[in-house]
């Protein structure tokens, strides 16, 4: 199938270039590890958690979702560099599927996020975090969908604004309220009612709740399927929109 073949070609190239410059892995893991080591210990007393492991069960899923959101949102910068080098324009004169131009890149972002997530999960195991493997895979699916959506949106916006100077403040402006209103770092359990009311409208808040439920081993929790459904729908919408930008982007 043409779409699959084209996506694979783009993905391969992107992965190759990524591996050629493995600094990303170090940077991508260093920061979350700092959170894990230096921030998480504060949580047991703050969250009133019975054990350190219980605190990690709440904190690690939030941290992973955070990584998925930010990892995705800032991928647009790489695309602007490609745009400037003429690589995108060169791809667009070939009959390659426009959707593949997007998916090949976004899938690279998903893969690199999952690698980061695995490393962080393994480290958290050292701190007595225990998760059922099946549930963990479902949680990774949630992360993958989030990263797919945020990276697609970032690429779409990058193609629209075409400059780092415009992309950076835009992405920061989007990311900040999303972050604060999702209960990523601390659950919104103790938030005042109005704040919880607003957070309901933040899809990432559902995604975080769902991921936490999975880490807690609570598969029956409605938040799990609701979170997955919401991010899946948004990921599809984001991909469709961004692919359209690839089809008509001007210089």
């Amino acid at each position: 199938m043409k779409l699959a073949r084209d996506t694979w070609l783009i993905f391969q190239r992107q992965i190759l270039l990524l591996l050629r410059n493995p600094v990303w892995l170090f940077v991508g893991v260093f920061q979350p590890v700092m959170y894990l080591l230096l921030f998480a210990p504060l949580l047991k007393p703050a969250l009133n958690a019975p054990t350190q492991a219980a605190a990690y069960k709440i904190f690690v899923p939030g941290l992973l979702v955070l990584l998925a959101i930010f990892g995705g949102l800032f991928q647009g910068f790489g695309l602007i560099a490609e745009l400037r080098a003429g690589v995108i324009e060169r791809s667009r004169v070939t009959p390659v599927s426009r959707l593949a131009l997007l998916l090949g890149r976004s899938l690279r972002d998903v893969v690199s996020l999952i690698v980061q997530a695995i490393i962080i999960t393994l480290l958290a195991l050292l701190f007595d975090l225990r998760v059922n493997l099946g549930y963990l895979l479902l949680a990774y699916l949630m992360l993958a969908l989030i990263a797919l959506m945020t990276s697609a949106v970032s690429y779409g916006v990058a193609l629209k604004v075409k400059s780092e100077d415009a992309l950076a403040p835009l992405m920061n402006t989007v990311a900040q309220p999303v972050l604060l209103l999702s209960g990523i770092l601390l659950p919104l359990l103790y938030a005042p009612g109005w704040l919880q009311g607003i957070a309901k409208w933040n899809p990432f808040s559902w995604a975080v709740d769902g991921t936490r439920a999975l880490f807690a081993g609570d598969l029956g929790n409605d938040k799990v399927w609701q979170g997955l459904a919401i991010v899946a729908v948004l990921a599809v919408a984001g991909v469709v929109w961004a692919a359209r930008q690839f089809a008509r982007s001007v210089r």
Partner: peptide, 25 residues
Amino acid sequence: YVAQGGSTWDESTAREELVLHARLY
């Protein structure tokens, strides 16, 4: 089509670019 501003990626080699570009066709 060969663009005015060039079309190669700094971190790729000429051979990689050529092979991929051909495969996109």
